Computed example of a mutant assay.
Amino acid sequence: MTVEFPIERAPGVAPGRSSASSYGGLVWTVATALDKTLDFKGQIAASFEKIERVLAQFGTDKRYLLSVNVFLSDLGSKAEFDVAWRQWSVAIPTTGRKGPAWVRFCHPEPWWRLPLWPQSLNDRALP
């Protein structure tokens, strides 16, 4: 017996890659600025725009984010990123909920260099 999993995929910029996948009402996506000549703020804005565009393709938006992983190449720029994050994430509701609707994790290393997958996302309950 074959079991079908209705997975939807949004094409990525390279053959064989997806910029997002959806299954069971959940969407997974990744965003980086394609234009590396942009300054830091420009790359942040381009990444946020891509996230919003991809979520819209699947009929949803940032108000329904469950978690966000952020990888910064330099944690010295985290304060600047935090300003942009607060401006962008203001539309994510927290009213009437116990704790935030999302978790954000910043790390200076790409995920493949981390010794273990961040436990703060997988094993810790929200307050």
Rank of each mutant, 00 (worst) to 15 (best):
M1A: 14
T2I: 07
V3F: 06
V3A: 09
E4N: 14
E4V: 12
E4G: 15
F5P: 08
P6L: 05
E8H: 12
E8I: 05
E8R: 15
G12D: 04
G12T: 05
G12R: 02
V13H: 11
G16W: 00
R17Y: 05
R17N: 03
S21K: 07
S21L: 11
S22P: 05
S22E: 09
Y23G: 06
Y23L: 13
L26W: 09
L26N: 11
V27W: 02
W28F: 12
W28N: 15
T29Q: 07
T29L: 14
V30Q: 15
V30R: 13
A31N: 11
T32E: 08
A33H: 01
L34S: 14
D35W: 02
T37I: 02
L38C: 04
L38W: 00
D39K: 01
D39N: 05
F40V: 10
F40G: 11
K41E: 12
K41D: 13
Q43S: 06
Q43G: 07
A45N: 12
A45Y: 04
S47P: 05
F48A: 10
E49D: 14
K50N: 10
R53A: 12
V54M: 05
V54G: 05
L55H: 10
A56I: 08
Q57W: 06
F58R: 08
G59P: 01
D61L: 04
Y64T: 11
L66W: 04
L66Y: 04
L66I: 04
S67T: 03
S67W: 01
N69D: 09
V70Q: 01
S73T: 13
D74L: 03
L75M: 13
L75Y: 02
K78M: 12
A79E: 10
A79S: 11
D82M: 10
D82S: 13
A84W: 05
W85T: 08
R86Q: 10
Q87Y: 10
A91I: 12
A91V: 15
I92E: 10
I92F: 09
I92H: 09
T94C: 10
T95Y: 13
T95R: 15
T95N: 15
R97F: 00
R97P: 00
G99Y: 01
G99M: 00
G99A: 00
P100V: 06
W102V: 12
W102H: 12
W102R: 14
R104P: 10
R104Q: 12
R104K: 13
F105L: 06
F105D: 00
F105N: 03
E109R: 11
W111D: 05
W112D: 11
L114T: 03
L114H: 04
L116F: 08
W117H: 12
Q119K: 01
S120Q: 09
S120H: 03
S120L: 02
S120T: 03
N122K: 02
R124T: 03
L126R: 03
